[in-house]
Amino acid sequence: MSSTESKPEMPSLPQFKLDAKFFKWVAIITLAVFLLNMKSLGEWWNLLFFEPMLNSLLLIYRYLGHSFALSILVFTVLIKLLTLPMTRKQMETTKKTQEMQPRLEELKKKYGNDQERMSQEQVKLMRELGISPTGCIGPMLIQFPIWIGLYNSVLRILSNNPAQLFELGKHVYPFLPQLSKLVPFQSRFLWLDLALPDPYYVMPILVAALMWAQQKMMASPTADAQQQQMNQSMGLMMPLMFGFFMYSAPSGVALYFVISNILSIVQQYFTTGWGGLLPKKASANAGAARNNASPASNSKGKSDGSKSQKKHSG
């Protein structure tokens, strides 16, 4: 027996190569450690999200008649404008998904029993129409820091006790000294104290109703009962959840959601029409009226739809 034969085989160890990938990770980790050493995670949150939002709100408040409701309105419009490219893409995806539904139903009829083929065809169809399966997640994700930042900002700005005001003092930009002179802030709007939850629950109900309406407009029509049921429950869950949050949140935050949802509904209407909000006939009439009003967008949408239908039937 040769010596090579008698040696047991050594288990293979992971190979570390000093290649570009290795150095890239070293650089990323070094940068992360450096950044966290410079400031804690909380300080980074304040620097990147909370303080810019808080000071923007204060600046708007200062120059727009010392009305916090008006500040929230302008702030919401600004946020909408900033996120417009992303939300437009999201709404266009919704529109394409709605248009894709009849073809998807056909595919289900054709390949319903062959799941693998079905999913291959579905991916092919989505690729053909330019739909990204994760296209809706981006705009959703970007909203989260805005919601949390706004929630914190409203609580801080409309402080009604020394502890909250002290926290505000730490985050007002020192190079904008005029902002400190605005304290205490005017928090009344109609029947609301924007720092406190709505005592009559109008705002939580409005938030839930508007969100439900928008969800309905976005929902893709489907003949699949299971899918339809899922859409319905999702369309109810989200508004109810937000309505519940707004029940105990400052009404200033609820006001942001009301304005934001109204703007989204308007934007959605000009992209997809009333969608699933109105019965099909009414929706079609609304769509026709909208199409008459804007022939350019109409012809594009219509031709796309008819083309896809034709292509499919052919």
Partner: peptide, 16 residues
Amino acid sequence: ALLVTGCFGARVAPGW
């Protein structure tokens, strides 16, 4: 992690 930090950043002292 940043979002979670933001969520809990609003806490203030209950009294002094």
